[in-house]
Design a protein around this nucleic acid. Sequence first.
DNA 1: CCAATAGTGTCTATTAGACACTATACT
DNA 2: AGTATAGTGTCTAATAGACACTATTGG
Lengths: 334, 334
Amino acid sequence: MHYESASVSERRTLPPAVAVSTVAFALRPPLGSAIGSAAPRPGEEAGAPTLWIPLVRRTRAPFLGRWALPGGPTRWNETLADTALRTLHDAVLRAPGYLEQLYSFGGVERSADAQRLVTIAYWALYGERDLAAEPSLAVRVSVPDAGRAGEPAPIGAPAAAGVRAVDPADGSVAPARWDDVPVAGDPSPALDTAEGPSQPGEEGACLPDLSDPNVSWFSADALPELAFDHAEIVAYALERLRVKTEYSAIAHLFLGPVFTLGQLRTVHEAVRGESVDPANFRRQALARGSLVDTGEFETGTPHRPARLYRFRDEPGPLSPSRPGPSAPQTKDTP
Amino acid sequence: MHYESASVSERRTLPPAVAVSTVAFALRPPLGSAIGSAAPRPGEEAGAPTLWIPLVRRTRAPFLGRWALPGGPTRWNETLADTALRTLHDAVLRAPGYLEQLYSFGGVERSADAQRLVTIAYWALYGERDLAAEPSLAVRVSVPDAGRAGEPAPIGAPAAAGVRAVDPADGSVAPARWDDVPVAGDPSPALDTAEGPSQPGEEGACLPDLSDPNVSWFSADALPELAFDHAEIVAYALERLRVKTEYSAIAHLFLGPVFTLGQLRTVHEAVRGESVDPANFRRQALARGSLVDTGEFETGTPHRPARLYRFRDEPGPLSPSRPGPSAPQTKDTP
DNA sequence: CCAATAGTGTCTATTAGACACTATACT
DNA sequence: AGTATAGTGTCTAATAGACACTATTGG
């Protein structure tokens, strides 16, 4: 509010603005969304599925017209995860199935001669169940992990009331609960974030509008040139997804509630970018102990039908267990 | 500047203040510093070394008198890492040998009815060489990694000009260079961060003053009650240190430029909190390929003298190689 | 029948870990 | 000699990966 009267030189001395940018992944673009990447890039036919990322075309000053990550400034009554979810929903019109903080960027050089900007990057994941529905319903938000097994103490910080924290490493559900995600135009009375005289580093999303021409999905390995340092953020998010897929069980979040081991393997192949031995993958996946045989089988395949599994403890909308902030647990396989 | 005239209700609508808090580790407190933990806690004699953490006693409103992590608001011309280094230096009077971002906390509940606060947590490491000297000289700042092997694309973001980014995973030196760290009282003309009418969540460090009574080192497993959610941040940092020690080579940073395998093993034991088989540790440490035999030997031991090693590529103050932001590399041992 | 994927069995190289043993300093 | 740590050798269990083989569907 006071900002709008500040001169350019004054803005330099203001405290940094806080914004969020999110790299979201899905195995395919949602139906009805615009597609940026032209076809599965040459050399890889429809055989190998790839990851898709939603981008937003910038409609203002720095990097005008360039594609950028969905995101925008934090509002005064939002947690950082809330901001990520809101701006992501503005772009994708759907809530992701998973959200995790990635890294914070506070370099003074990010917006050279304008107000300082601190950007917290998140990464998100859209599964089949998330891509399907039109109205957003719920979302799970993870807590940080120490970068590998034995998820550390879930810090009670980021997820404000109303967001669920789930520990994807061992499948156990950490403190949290389901709730609604703030939808598009919730009136936050304060701080017009969208229209300051120039929030210069602002990396905003556009108003939700069915088939928004300024929102499009791109194949992760055929991205256009991105605004700011978003290309590096995407690269980092991809690496994070790869690493996390190897030691944690998140691949199933790309799929529906039940899936075959072949489908799960396909996710791993898309994430790792290489083919995986079906036999060995099967053993490892089952050895994790987090898959439950539903007893059902795939139908309508031109080959032997595969067994259907679901992830362990796919709970109903509520589960009362609350392990608490918890001491560090055991690691699994160093 | 505008803030100082804002009422309490107005402050709620201001953009969040950005602060940094740092969990620093060392194998021992620096000489001449105050010691908070009374003796090596019972049950563990001098035999097993533990980790030490510097804390700062709060001198203002929320949590007055409680111990807290060194930290404080970021200044307009500082990167986040700069802020961590400055506030850490204010408390410890020395620059750490390693600094890495941990996580960002932006919950709206952190400062209930006052200005919103976003805190970026860092963790740092003081080695023997860092604890020795009194005037600060240089510091290495790491870039994020994806949480495990195959360090991801070093994102050029956080480290502003003048801070070195080193990739501790494989010992190769990533883009960066040595430089001075901002020392105590550099006059930042703008934004009086220390004395707003009440920057309520502010977690500031005190003025540097030899043997500051408000700064003390505590054994990591005998910490006092901490302000804010700092206990959880410490727990997370500890877990991060443990995990990172297992897959990356950072333990040597606790030691001097040359060290024996026994000393290195002692560091691992302190970090992991359990004893490690000397024979197996030796093999693994040497198999990494990052240790160089100096050909020298320990002297003055009451037993067979141990061979002295140094870490691979312990370079002079400057090394020109610059791999660049780089594509994700290969992983090592999933 | 064939094509295609599901699913099982098995062999090998690597690794973590336990632990016995030898080597070399000081007292 | 005795003690303490350095350093080597070796055995075992677990694991990742390669790959041959059988099973079961649709066409």
